[in-house]
Structure formats: C-alpha cells, structure tokens
Design a protein around this nucleic acid. Sequence first.
DNA 1: ACCTGAACACCGTTCAAGT
DNA 2: ACCTGAACACCGTTCAAGT
Lengths: 213, 213
Amino acid sequence: MREVIRRQRYHHGNLREALVEAALALVEERGSPEFTLREVARRVGVTHAAPQRHFEDRAALVAAVAEEGFHGLRAHVESVAGLAKARDPAARLHALGVAYVQFAVRNPAHFRVMFTAELADKSRHPSLQAASRAMHDFLVQCIEDGQREGFFVEGDPLELAFAAWSLVHGLAVLLVDGRGMGRRPAPLIESVVARLHTGLLPRHRPKRKRRKH
Amino acid sequence: MREVIRRQRYHHGNLREALVEAALALVEERGSPEFTLREVARRVGVTHAAPQRHFEDRAALVAAVAEEGFHGLRAHVESVAGLAKARDPAARLHALGVAYVQFAVRNPAHFRVMFTAELADKSRHPSLQAASRAMHDFLVQCIEDGQREGFFVEGDPLELAFAAWSLVHGLAVLLVDGRGMGRRPAPLIESVVARLHTGLLPRHRPKRKRRKH
DNA sequence: ACCTGAACACCGTTCAAGT
DNA sequence: ACCTGAACACCGTTCAAGT
C-alpha cells in the first residue's frame, strides 16, 4: 500500500524538497524521529546515493527537517501570540507558551527531530541555528515588551526568557515522551504554563514554623 | 591507547555489568548518547553476539544504561535535598531543582541516554520505569510536605510537581544541548530555578494601561 | 548538472557449533 | 550456561560511469 512515486523524468527537478517532505512524512507516520537516508530515497523513488548531491550527509537532511520544524513552530507561536495581541503581555506570553507545547504535542516526532542529540553541534548547520534563534528572539521580544509595561518582574530579559523557555520546553519534552501521567494534555498544559506567571509560592509567605529542637 | 581487556576466562563472569559500564564510559568519553552494540562488545573484549545472552536487543542495553542514570540522579538529588532538610521546604525544592540540572550538566551524555527517544515506549522496560518513577515520587513528596506547611500554593500536588519538573527538566535539556546562550551555567541555573518559586509576574500587578482605540 | 550502480566498511540480529 | 563464528539483511558514504 506504500505509495512510491517513481519519477518519469530522469532528473527529479526538486529532489531536495521531496527528500525533506518524505523524511518528515516518514517520521510523523510512525511517531519516531529516526529515519534512514535509504528509506527516504526509496520513498521518493531515487537511488540511495542520489541525496548526496543535495545533502552532504545524513545529518544535513536531519538538519533540514529540523529547520522546517523551527519555521513551523515559530509561525504557530507567532500567530497565536498575535491573536492575543489585544490582551496584555502576560496573556500573550501565556498564549505563546501554550502554542509552543501544542505544536510539540501535535507534531511529536517532528519536534523530537528538532531537538535530537545528533544536531547538538549546531555550528555545522547555520541556517538551522538561524531558524532556532528567530523563535528565541520572538520570545525575548515578548518579555521585553511586558517588562516595559511593568507586567513582568525586572531583571535581565534574556534570563527571564530562558526561564520561560525552560518551563515550556520541559513541559513539551515530557509530554511528547509520554510522561504526562496519563492526563488529558490540554488542561495540564494550561495549568502548568500558568505557573510560569505566579510560581509555586503563595502570594503571602507563611509564618516560619518554630522548629522543634 | 584504548584499553581493551581481553578476558582470560572463557566465561566473563559479569558480562552484563561490564557491558553497561563500557557503554556508559563510551558515551561520556565522546559526549554523545549514541553507541553501537558491537563497539561496546569490542571494548569489553567479547564477540559482538555475546551481549545477546544478557540483553534481548540493543534497546535493552540502552535501557540499562538509562536506568543506572536514574538511580544516580535520584541519589544526587536526594542527598542534596537531604542536606537542605534543615531549611524550609521551599529551599529544599530549590536545592532539588539545582541538583537535577547539575547532574545533567555534569553527565550530559548519560542524561541524554536517560531521555532518548528510543526509550519512549517505557512499558517495554519496567525496571527503567520504576527507577524514573522513584525520582518523580521524591519530588511529589517534597511538594506535598511544603503544601502541608503552607509554603506552596494549594492545588493538585501532582500538577505542581509536574510544573516544577517541567522547568527543571527543560533547563537541563537546553543547557545540555548547548542552548545556554554561552553563559556560565551555575548562576544561570540558580536564577532560573529561583523563578520556579516566584514566577515572572511582579508581586503587585501594574495598573491596566488604557488601550488607544 | 544530476542520478545510477557497484563497492566498502559497518551495523543489529540470528543460530548452529564449540567449551 | 555462556560465548564464538559465520551468515543475513541492512546501513552511510564514496565514486566511476551513464544521460
């Protein structure tokens, strides 16, 4: 039942894009971020050596799939945060965080490719780094806007952004890895992302209990 | 310069442990969570088919390495949180979080093995699941203790624990993946984990700005 | 310029055979 | 009971050759 399109033309015409798409489809179909160059080539209908013209090695194809993921993630996050623009910066940041986790939960395998350990050395893939950075910059912008209006605590915006990213990314990773304690994701996401704003401490600290000696 | 210990005895005696240790050493030496069964066998000095007696497949060895990681992580976290026992539950949770991230930063490759996508289906590895759960339970315990004394907000402790875990795990993952913005890890860890308690909102909300129509 | 087809060194897994 | 050695199907990468 596998649909392998064998190209009539000797030259594919757009092999690069076709390989990225095929890899992405493979990955999401079986829910695992792993794929081999050869199965991707088979799916597209070319020889296993054909990709070499377009991707220096397997890692380059993985990076291209990851890069497309970062673009999609950024588009989703920006559109959702844009809808929340009418509201205050805190609501916008909340929407941003929820959108981030939503993307991960909806595209789990793609999300895992984006953060696979094989790409840890991003210096080898500059355009991937740029795509990842673009999303980060948008987050920092949100934080800075909020700080200017007094909606967030003062301090280094990069540091606050990193804290926000940590919570949201950790939540995404844990959910994608099936560590969500079997709960429905949507309400869990809402409540966890909400903790980003208020933290775990009550608004009024309790009296220090007297320690029994 | 590679030290390959070829066993004199025909029977290794403790091949299972030796394989786990060799895999762990390999992984940390080169900073990547990937390893092949055959190179681990070579390092131990046995045939590539020998591991089959002790591990059903490669995934089983990966799971064993991950499991050891969870035990180590739990030991580190519990000892650090234990030292902070004299202080209040909030300080204890902070120490727990910092210890979690410290472990990841100090054993990056091992940490990545623990959360590799290959083990996403943990149901196949019950003892791994147990080791992971033990750490989670300790965290929940900390939250519940703190709530009883009024140090944390009220609400479902599992949900609060999941939020705490998300922040701390996300921070660990991002740092291990080299996304720490080039800063020294220690102060960044301190400040990000501290945000878990207070959140990003100031203690007093600003007046709502009047929106220009 | 772009792809094929064969070759190479490697891999995980299986299994009869050795001790 | 535990490991070896050969076999199998697969993999990423390279490269001369085809169109």
